[in-house]
């Protein structure tokens, strides 16, 4: 195999890998898995220096918000 050819294969592989990574990122977003990361980012920005909630604690509160705020679902 020539150098240019291996280079092309490597580039194609990298493109496919990047596309898959992006698809996974979007799927996680749609499922709502980013919530903790969003919280951490927000917390670091608004309360620098204060330790954030642990992951388990965060998810518990996150889901329990649904008890007081109805989400809307359609027909």
């Amino acid at each position: 195999m020539t150098d240019t050819r291996t280079g092309r294969v490597r580039r194609a592989r990298a493109t496919v890998a990047a596309a898959l990574a992006q698809a996974w990122h979007i799927a996680r977003g749609v499922a709502g898995e980013h919530a903790y990361e969003i919280y951490l980012e927000h917390h670091a920005r608004t309360h620098p220096g204060v330790p954030p909630m642990g992951e388990r604690e965060f998810w518990r509160r996150h889901v329990d918000r649904g008890d007081t705020e109805p989400g809307s679902r359609c027909c």
């Binding site: 799927a27 996680r28 499922a31 709502g32 898995e33 919530a35 903790y36 992951e55 388990r56 965060f58 998810w59 518990r60 889901v63």
Partner: peptide, 11 residues
């Protein structure tokens, strides 16, 4: 499972 074993692992 989501509450006690794997919080946040929705997928």
């Amino acid at each position: 499972y989501l509450r006690y074993l794997r919080p946040g692992r929705v997928i």
